[in-house]
Simulated scan of single mutants.
Amino acid sequence: MDFTNPLVYGVPCFIAFILLELTYSKTHGHDELYVWKDLMASGAMGIGSAILGPLLKVTVLIVVFEFTYELFNPIVDGVRTNIMGYKSFGYAWYVWLLCQLADDFTYYWFHRANHEIRILWAAHIVHHSSDNFNLGTAVRNGWFTLLYKPFFYMWMPAIGFPVEMVIVCLAIESLWQFQLHSQYVPKMGWIEKIFNTHTMHQVHHSQNVEYLDKNHGGFLNIFDKIFGTWKELDDDIEVKFGVIHAPNSYNPIVILTHEFKDIWADVKKAKKFSHKLMYIFGPPGWSPDGSTLTVKQQQRLFREHKSQNPEAAFSRPN
């Protein structure tokens, strides 16, 4: 069995858990958890990813990883040796653990880049575009991220991790991410100190200003804590899921492309070349005149407003 394509081989499990959560929500008075049109849109994009995934895995991921591995780890005197002079990694159990840790570190920066670089956000916003947070949302993945994700991970085969090991670790990461998209799992005590959990991922999918661009981690939360993007779910804050500038459509094509369309509109109206570049590669919400705000600008205003009016509700800027 090929373990390197979890979206395909995990499909029966994904469907089973989605149906289980759906049934539980409808039989326990949580009708708002699943919206049928929204679930169908998520399912359509999940099916598209399942179809495109195997094709791109061969043409992009494996080719890129194999080329990188062979280039940086040639066989010297019959031994696979990294160009930095040490023997390339084998398959010892501790190497697997190191590879999984390296994968999680890479996932953190890949995920964070998707939120902080607008052209990447245009591909990733698909996953955040639903106003619902459930296991159906977990399969609501953008198709374009499949094109560039492997390039974030090239350093791993370059330093000597075997290609198949890297791909299996990517698969494990994907499986962990799927199950995080449930509201039925409460806070988990000491586990929360180490792992990225369901409540932490609710923060990540929130459009509340104080929660924006938080908790990018994969299965660990250590990198969020180290790099200042970790935030715990506050039971006193009512979470609003989704994105501020939503596509307002259940059409999969609109959901997949609406942010690219907005980028193009901004680029066309920009008078300076530097502004055009910022609209593409700058943070989402950037504008030269402050007519739209980045997440950091919104959060700075939020903190200022809260310090001046601690009891007042904050009106989110557009």
Rank of each mutant, 00 (worst) to 15 (best):
1 M>F: 15
3 F>R: 09
9 Y>I: 15
11 V>C: 00
11 V>S: 01
14 F>C: 01
16 A>S: 11
16 A>D: 06
17 F>P: 00
18 I>C: 05
19 L>P: 01
22 L>N: 03
26 K>H: 10
26 K>G: 00
31 D>S: 09
34 Y>R: 02
34 Y>I: 03
35 V>S: 09
42 S>P: 00
47 I>F: 11
49 S>A: 14
51 I>L: 09
51 I>D: 01
51 I>H: 00
53 G>V: 01
63 V>D: 12
68 T>M: 08
69 Y>P: 08
73 N>Q: 10
74 P>C: 10
79 V>M: 13
80 R>A: 12
86 Y>P: 06
90 G>F: 07
93 W>S: 04
94 Y>W: 15
102 A>R: 02
106 T>C: 14
107 Y>K: 02
111 H>L: 04
116 E>R: 14
118 R>S: 08
119 I>A: 02
121 W>I: 06
125 I>Y: 00
126 V>M: 04
130 S>Q: 03
134 N>L: 12
135 L>W: 07
141 N>Y: 04
144 F>Q: 10
148 Y>G: 09
148 Y>I: 06
149 K>Q: 14
153 Y>F: 15
157 P>M: 07
157 P>I: 03
159 I>D: 09
159 I>K: 06
160 G>N: 08
165 M>P: 03
167 I>W: 04
169 C>A: 15
171 A>V: 04
172 I>A: 08
173 E>I: 01
175 L>E: 11
179 Q>N: 03
179 Q>F: 15
185 V>R: 10
186 P>W: 06
186 P>H: 05
190 W>N: 06
191 I>E: 01
194 I>S: 11
203 V>F: 11
205 H>S: 01
208 N>M: 05
208 N>T: 03
222 I>L: 13
226 I>Y: 06
226 I>M: 12
226 I>T: 08
227 F>M: 05
228 G>F: 08
233 L>H: 13
239 V>G: 09
239 V>Y: 10
244 I>C: 12
245 H>L: 14
248 N>K: 15
250 Y>N: 11
252 P>Q: 07
257 T>Y: 04
260 F>I: 12
260 F>N: 07
263 I>E: 02
267 V>Y: 09
268 K>A: 13
268 K>C: 12
272 K>S: 12
274 S>L: 07
279 Y>K: 05
281 F>K: 10
281 F>V: 13
281 F>E: 08
286 W>Q: 03
286 W>G: 02
289 D>Y: 00
290 G>W: 01
292 T>K: 13
303 R>P: 00
305 H>I: 00
305 H>Y: 15
305 H>G: 01
310 P>T: 00
316 R>G: 03
